[in-house]
Each structure stands twice: as C-alpha cells, then as structure tokens.
C-alpha cells in the first residue's frame, strides 16, 4: 500500500545521546558555565551534607566553649589550642560549620520559596492564558500591581502581617515558613507573565484542539498538554530566581526579620559578622559573605547559560 519507513537504528545509549546533544555541546563548550555549575553543585552538596562534613555542631550549646571565641582562621586558639579553619565567632562557634549549616537554611528557604512562587505563578499564568477574558485581565492586573512593588517590600509586608497573626510562642518555629511565603509571594508574577505568554501561543496550536476533540476538560488539557510545552522558559526563570531568592532571604535575615539566631542562615551570619568588622575579627563577616556571593553567582551563571541555550533565537 505504501512505504514502510525503517525505524531509525538505536546504536547509542541514552547517556551517549545526551552527551552528544546540542544542549550538552553548548554546555561543554562554555568553560565558565562548567566551572559555575561545578561550584554550585559543590556548594549545594556541602550544604545538604552539612551534618556529615561539619567538624562541629554549631547549634549544640553544650559543645560551645566561650574560651574558643575569636579564634583566627587556621591558627590554634590562644587558650584552648583548637584550630578552626575559618576561625570562630564570639561564642567560640566554628565559622566553617556555621556556614555549612547556614547555606543549608539559605538554600532550603530559597528552593522552597521558588517552588512556592512556581506553583502559584505557573498555575495562575496557565489559567490566565488558557481561559482568557475577565479571569485573565484580573490575574494579570494583580500581577502588574505586584511587579510594581519592589520584591523586598512585598516580603517585608508579608512578614509583618505574619508577625501580627502568629502567636509569639510559635513565631520562631514558623519563621522559615513565613520567609518562604514572603519571598514566594514577591516573585510569582514573573512566572505568571511568562507562562501566560507561552500558553497563549500553545493553546492556539492544533494539538490542543485535538485534545479538546476527544472531550478532555480544560484542566487535563492545561496540565497534560500545555504545561509540558511551556515549562522550558519557566525552568530558566526558576534557576535564576533561586539565586535571587537566596539573596532575598539573606537580605531579610540581615535586616533582622529573617531566620532567628538559633537557626542562622547565611544572612543571619552576615548580620552578626558585620558587628565585628571594625574590631579586627574580619573572618566572621568575610567567609559567610563570600559563600553567599559564590552561591548566587554560580547559580546565576548556570541560569544565564540555560536561558541562552534554550533560546532558539540566540542559537
């Protein structure tokens, strides 16, 4: 009746094909990206494995010894003779361990808030783009208003409201959650805009019509058909936003509305550290700041590459 095209041979394995793909090639040929990615991975792994790597537990008051206080990096303490790689703070807390645990908190807050804004933003963006009409107008106007406020202001606002609502006894435990919501709420609009734009394009493609023809309701069509096709740009924004969220968390913590001293994040560490800057104990500020900068920078560089690599116009 008609020709039977031969199935293409599958000589290569999945991994080999991935390695040979255009995306992998563009990755391989950018040394900066490779370095940034390795650094980001290293920092993330170190944060995740903090309890295994950290030489001390900075949050166990029993293990703290005030006489260890203000040890200089790589030098034995004058009194106890202990060596702290990156020095210790006023309470004799090991800075290296504190940074490991701190980046853990920072990344946790960052990732959770990105996830939070992702869910809200993508959900609202999909609905706005797919449903259209007044729903769309309402969602997008709210997003516009949100975007016209600086993110930090929105976060501060949410934080303030939460402070007022949550009973003081619970406040300390709830801080992490409040931070996630605050940062998350200040960033969703970007996703909503991007997703709405891509959804408008995708919903006019006829594969969506084909899905409607077999009687699929709006939600299955959006989730099964449209969502996978608008996910690319969202992924890019999410990566770059992860770096931003980590910095935003640090800012809030630095301003004193973030993580409490009992669970310090990188921002909290920097807040403490800056008190000692002019008294000569520079390491308490320098090392947490350095880690924050490297973390944000490496994630951002990776995100930048991802954006360019996925953008067909720049290829």
């Amino acid at each position: 009746m008609s020709s039977t095209p031969l199935p293409t041979p599958r000589s290569q394995g999945r991994l080999a094909r991935l390695w040979d793909s255009d995306l992998a090639f563009s990755f391989r040929s950018s040394p900066v990206t490779v370095a940034a990615t390795l650094l980001a991975l290293l920092l993330v792994l170190a944060a995740v494995a903090a309890p295994l790597i950290a030489p001390y537990d900075p949050f166990d008051p029993a293990s703290l010894d005030l006489s260890d206080g203000f040890s200089r990096p790589m030098e034995p303490n004058e009194i106890t003779g202990k060596v702290f790689w990156l020095g210790s703070d006023a309470q004799g807390r090991d800075i290296f361990s504190a940074i490991l645990y701190g980046s853990r908190v920072s990344l946790l807050v960052g990732a959770a808030s990105v996830l939070f804004s992702l869910v809200i933003g993508v959900g609202l963006g999909l609905v706005a783009g797919y449903v259209g009409g007044r729903t769309e107008a309402l969602i997008m106007r709210v997003a516009d208003v949100q975007l016209s406020f600086p993110a930090i202001l929105v976060a501060l606002l949410v934080f303030g409201v939460a402070r007022g609502l949550i009973p003081p006894a619970l406040q300390e435990q709830m801080t992490l959650l409040v931070l996630v919501v605050a940062i998350g709420l200040s960033n969703w609009a970007q996703y909503a805009r991007t997703v709405r734009g891509s959804t408008l394009v995708e919903k006019n493609k006829v594969y969506v019509d084909a899905a409607r023809l077999i009687g699929l309701k709006a939600w299955p069509v959006m989730l099964k058909h449209v969502l996978p096709n608008v996910a690319g740009p969202v992924l890019v924004i999410a990566t770059i936003n992860l770096a931003l969220a980590v910095i935003e968390e640090a800012t809030l913590s630095f301003l004193g509305v973030g993580m409490p001293p009992t669970q310090p994040s990188l921002g909290t560490l920097i807040r403490f550290g800056q008190q000692y800057l002019f008294s000569g104990e520079w390491w308490i500020l320098l090392f947490p700041s350095l880690v924050l900068v490297l973390l944000a920078l490496s994630i951002n560089l990776f995100g930048d590459w991802l954006r360019d690599a996925l953008n067909p116009k720049l290829r």
């Binding site: 493609k205 006829v206 594969y207 019509d209 084909a210 899905a211 023809l213 096709n229």
Partner: peptide, 14 residues
C-alpha cells in the same frame, strides 16, 4: 474526528 492542516502543530511535541 479531525485531521488538521499543520502536521507540525497538531502533535504534542513533548
């Protein structure tokens, strides 16, 4: 059922 004009847009690429 329906067959569409553009075979590049009528199949979900993912």
């Amino acid at each position: 059922q329906m067959i569409f004009q553009d075979p590049y847009a009528s199949l979900n690429p993912r």
